[in-house]
Design a protein around this nucleic acid. Structure first.
Lengths: 347, 347
DNA sequence: GCGGCCATCCAAAGCGCTTTGAAACGATTC
DNA sequence: GAATCGTTTCAAAGCGCTTTGGATGGCCGC
């Protein structure tokens, strides 16, 4: 069923049908009702492509996911993020278009999306320091919002980010307050902006407390269980092991826990663990009482809100840039406790 | 830059440009080269919706993700699956369109995708027993492939599935061969077809070995770390605890491991654990040597192959249905060992 | 009774592409 | 030299919608 057929069936012009369905005022309320009913009855919905052609809008938003050619890693937070964004899109009549691509071809993908008119805007995921995509998208003229931030970028742009620096300041502060002096950091890849900020927060608090930064207690790697385990294992087996570890994700923290348990160390007593928690739906940090003490912020909520910003930006491409900073919340679980008098293994 | 502008710039008709770019034979090779070069130079790409309108094809494939209104759970394997499917789509010029929806509105979403002509076909995720979506999609006339199977559906349809039953037969058999007699099952939600099949495989092997099915050793729930932990904890604290546990996902297995460690039980010695492993990129089962003994099959590979089937189906809507059964592979890790003489806690 | 003004509806143009049917032209054949 | 043919190109229709610029008719005030 298309517009023409429906119009013939109703004895009305296509114009009137279109207007009735799109809520324009110049159509009699009785007529509108008749049209709406008929559309419902005949299961009529305007063809997306035809509508897009006529209006010049795609009513779609793109997410370009770089699949790292080396790691072949799909970011685990991705699922929850787009679930959040998807809610907002659905509520606003937008479609979500996802493109997986080798990171080397990412620029080409953006150009293509723009010149083919496939989407009205895009979300930039996982910005690095001085991320080249931002300048590219500005140049190409494709509206976008960044999930995170990229420093050293000169132009202003829309972004939504968690205050990662402050989150890790708090986390480190919390452990310092418990008397810990040797605190390890199992971070994400520090080429990613968020990880760099987390490290900055960690270092700032140590420095403020007069504690020297020790590279032996810092790891920067893809946030997997295996890497969390390896990093913690190396630290714990080192000459001067930490009494506390800050991890950048719940998955890494699970690896850390495994390293502790292998060494018969009790988490929260012998070694404290504090993690960042994205609040993923399938990886809850305990049910009622949290397992890990954590700084947390819902990535799903971030998706929802970022999508709202992007939709506004598409409606008004030249308005002033929006910046949203989310603060992570500290929740105390069972994985932290006062620093032991003697570090683990030396008691 | 659109077709018309490009054609004027080249002094050729739009017809010729279109044909040259789409590889039709009736255009002089020299002319084609000239056109291709110009398109490249002016960064011209045909508008997606105009092309779609003219051809009647969307060049897009839909994935409808039901967000369970109660659980609000995003399936963790989803990310890797669409990464695989995305590779195939990209290679074939298809776009991936994702719609998140409450499960109650899922039927409406399919109808809408079809009548708006938004996609050429869809992937059905997570089929339940006698899944209503299959009949619906047949009725609506939207090409689809099911990831998994749904029994009790009368019509034939395309599917790609792992042989879940055999995988769990093997897993159970392996533990039986090690001398285990009390084997627990931490399964996914058995309203999902795959989980039901896994249970059937588990039960079949126990029965074959002359062991009575004990409901006290079986759990069926969303596959989260917390549920894995709770299920294992209950079994282990029960009157007649298992010496081995089969888990339905690596995430559940991690919860099981936590329950063991809380009880000072050594995995692989006191209690054996065998898990199903979807081989998610961010949740590897160890690096070189697997941590968990597992039956495994790559969900990413499944995504790739399923997408190929769907693309063939779209090209030939009335061809014979394709069925692909993937066999899971058994890999031996450190989490299994011979059954202890006395069950844990009773030594 | 007439011009003017709403309210309501419509015909047709246009969005950017593909594709049909035909034209133009040189080469080949009889 | 006319008829035929193959190659290459083009004009125009059509995909299904939105939107512009009227048309129509009823109603008001004068």
């Amino acid at each position: 069923m298309n517009l023409k057929q429906l119009s013939e069936k109703l004895g009305l012009s296509q114009t009137t049908i279109s207007r009735a369905l799109n809520g324009y005022p110049e159509v009699n309320e009785a007529t509108r009702q008749r049209v709406v009913d008929a559309a419902e009855r005949f299961n009529y919905r305007p063809n997306s492509r035809a509508k897009g052609l006529a209006t010049g809008r795609a009513l779609a938003i793109g997410h370009v996911i770089p699949i790292k050619t080396r790691h072949e890693m799909v970011n685990p937070i991705f699922g929850d993020f787009i679930a959040g964004a998807g809610e907002t899109y659905a509520a606003n009549g937008y479609e979500m278009v996802i493109t997986m691509t080798e990171d080397s071809k990412e620029a080409e993908v953006y150009r293509s999306l723009k010149s083919r008119g496939a989407v009205d805007g895009v979300v930039v995921h996982g910005p690095t320091l001085n991320d080249p995509r931002i300048a590219l998208l500005h140049r190409v003229g494709l509206p976008f919002v960044v999930h995170g931030r990229s420093s050293q970028v000169t132009q202003d742009y829309d972004w939504l980010d968690v205050n990662n620096r402050r989150a890790f300041e708090r986390a480190t502060r919390f452990l310092l307050d418990l008397g810990h002096r040797r605190i390890g950091l199992i971070n994400g890849l520090e080429t990613q902006e968020f990880a760099a900020r987390r490290r900055a927060g960690y270092e700032a608090m140590l420095t403020q407390a007069g504690i020297a930064i020790d590279p032996a207690l810092m790891r920067s790697d893809e946030m997997t269980e295996a890497n969390g385990h390896r990093g913690a294992a190396e630290m714990l087996d080192g000459p001067d092991p930490p009494t506390a570890i800050v991890a950048s994700s719940l998955i890494s923290a699970i690896g850390v826990r495994r390293a502790l348990e292998e060494r018969q160390l009790k988490m929260g007593r012998d070694v404290s663990v504090l993690t960042y928690d994205d609040m993923l739906s399938y990886l809850r940090n305990g049910t009622d009482v949290p397992i890990f003490t954590a700084v947390r912020s819902s990535v799903r909520e971030a998706g929802r809100r970022l999508a709202e910003i992007l939709i506004r930006r598409i409606a008004d491409p030249h308005g002033p840039p929006e910046h949203v900073m989310l603060e992570a919340e500290l929740v105390v679980g069972q994985s932290t406790g006062p620093a032991p008098r003697w570090p683990a293994g030396q008691a």
